[in-house]
Nucleic acid binder design. Structure first.
Length: 457
RNA sequence: GGUGAGGUGGCAGAACGGUUAUGCGUGGGCCUGCAAAGCCUAUACAAGAGGGUUCGACUCCCUUCCUCACCUCCA
């Protein structure tokens, strides 16, 4: 029960992870723009995985990087007349605003390329020394040919890669499949190095930072599917050439978020930012949306799926408040089926279904009047734990005593047939996002999350 | 062209060698002072096509068609 199996892209098998301490390196974002729902999905998947592992008593070291120096950042900064590092750090700021709103737990650490220059230079030196990298005028390159396992992750072979490559005129690298470790440049931002001033290539920061923060081999290396090649393939080449050890026990890749079946991209203009979705649908519906499909498969972004996710969230809120008011203990309780779903290659789709079954069970009992303290205690404990693992957040009203008082007042009016007055109270509460559920033997109140644009659907 | 994933009922989308997925939608009903919310019930040739293995396949094997992703910007 406490073992979890995760599908490993490298071996194509599900691998058991039963260490007490779990090290995870998650490839985060390049900070040259706001994040979109695709980033959000990957990060939410790992946030829930982390919460689940911690719930099982594992100690999780989640390291998520920010690529804060990159050609795209520089281009963007030039276009806006801003300093590149100022720009990238302002987007890190915005990243945290968005993901705090999304109730994503802060990672254990968020290393950045620009604060790991020494480590990056050290690892490049190591690669040059061992003959896996070479120095030319334009910088330092990794010799793909020198690494016999190149292509193992993405199932590619070097010859085919070579034949597919476009001509890049200004490259003086030996082999067109080679990739940059250090790009020599005199324009800022740049850093000093044994090979002249310049900037690191995209992949090397992750090798340097994962080595520093997680050691030579760690449990899970993750990111979006689109990082398999070249990013993760190159990381493996760099790290293995240095340490001689496997980089990660499990390579875990999250499927893309598509729009009308196609990947989001700037050129198609179909980007949905995390922020805009958050503004419209709130954090909880967005989280449920991102968890609604199996993490390995694509999810198609549609209005309907968001509506479904929001509906489920509304039912969960009601369920939670019904149980909370019926139960007299509020401890969390394990629901075995739920854990079995998550342990089996992190099947959040199945886990949500099981949560939905529990919500229905509560509705059934509430309708039938068969919900008593003892079963409410158990169901409350289960729901509360599921909500917590999914990282959902139940909103709270300001003054519950006032609500109780209003309900009692309304009850008096109802008993004496003064329905108009009773309805006024109900309306007044409704305006404060409080919904009243009338059951045979009493009224339960539910506080609903206020949507930024306050749409129920 | 190469590699990988997949093609399931009106739509979305799982598991599984033999038993109702589930959700949304749609029809009817119950509860209620009325609502809301919820519940009940009904509804779907379900498996891209063609072979094969098997007592039995959506699930395994082969063939074929189609979709998507990646092939140095990518979460």
């Amino acid at each position: 029960m406490s073992t979890i199996r995760i599908h490993d892209t490298m071996s194509g098998r599900d691998i058991r992870l039963d260490h007490d301490k779990i090290g995870i390196y998650l490839c985060g974002v390049t900070t040259y723009d706001d994040t979109h729902i695709g980033h959000a999905r990957t990060i939410i998947v790992f946030d829930v995985l982390r919460r689940y592992l911690e719930e099982m008593g594992r100690q999780v070291n989640l390291v998520q990087n920010f690529t804060d120096i990159d050609d795209k950042i520089i281009q963007r900064a030039d276009a806006e007349g801003r300093d590149a590092l100022e720009l990238s750090h302002s987007y890190i700021e915005r990243y945290h605003q968005d993901f705090d709103r999304l109730n994503v737990k802060r990672a254990t650490s968020y290393p950045q390329a620009t604060t790991h220059m020494q480590e990056i230079i050290d690892i490049i030196s190591e690669l040059v020394k061992s003959g896996h990298a070479y120095v030319v005028d334009s910088g330092v390159y990794y010799s793909v040919e020198s690494f016999y396992e190149y292509g193992a992750l993405s199932k590619k072979n070097i010859r085919e890669l070579r034949s597919g490559i476009r001509i890049d005129p200004e490259q003086d690298k030996h082999d067109k499949v080679d990739f940059a470790l250090w790009k020599r440049t005199d324009t800022k931002p740049n850093w000093d190095s044994p090979w002249g001033s310049g900037r690191p290539g995209w992949h090397i920061e992750c090798s340097a930072m994962s080595l520093k923060h997680l050691g030579r081999t760690f449990d899970i290396h993750g990111g979006g599917r689109d990082l398999i090649f070249p990013h993760h393939e190159n990381e493996i080449a760099q790290s293995r050439a240095c340490t001689g050890l496997p980089l990660a026990r499990v390579w875990m890749h999250v499927g893309m978020v598509t729009i009308s079946g196609q990947k989001m991209s700037k050129s198609l203009g179909n980007i949905k930012t995390t922020r805009s979705i958050l503004d419209r649908w709130g954090p909880n519906a967005l989280r449920l949306f991102c968890l609604s499909g199996h993490y390995q498969k694509p999810i198609d972004y549609t209005q309907e799926l968001l509506v479904e996710s929001l509906d489920l969230w509304r039912r969960l809120e009601s369920c939670h408040y019904i149980l909370e008011q019926m139960a007299d203990t509020h401890d969390t309780i394990v629901h075995d089926e739920f854990d079995a779903a998550l342990s089996s290659n992190f099947n959040t789709h199945e886990a949500i279904k099981i949560m939905g079954d529990t919500v229905r069970e509560v509705g059934e009992m509430a309708s039938a009047g068969s919900l008593y303290t003892d079963n409410a205690n158990i169901l409350y404990g289960r729901i509360a734990r599921m909500i917590s693992i999914f990282g959902l957040h139940i909103s709270r009203p300001e003054n519950t005593e006032q609500i109780q008082h209003d309900i009692a007042q309304r009850e008096k009016y109802r008993r004496s047939g003064k329905y108009k007055q009773a309805d006024i109270i109900r309306e007044r509460l409704h305006a404060k996002n409080i919904e009243l559920l009338d059951y045979k033997d009493g009224t339960v109140w539910v506080y609903h999350e206020i949507m930024p644009h306050n749409i129920r659907h």
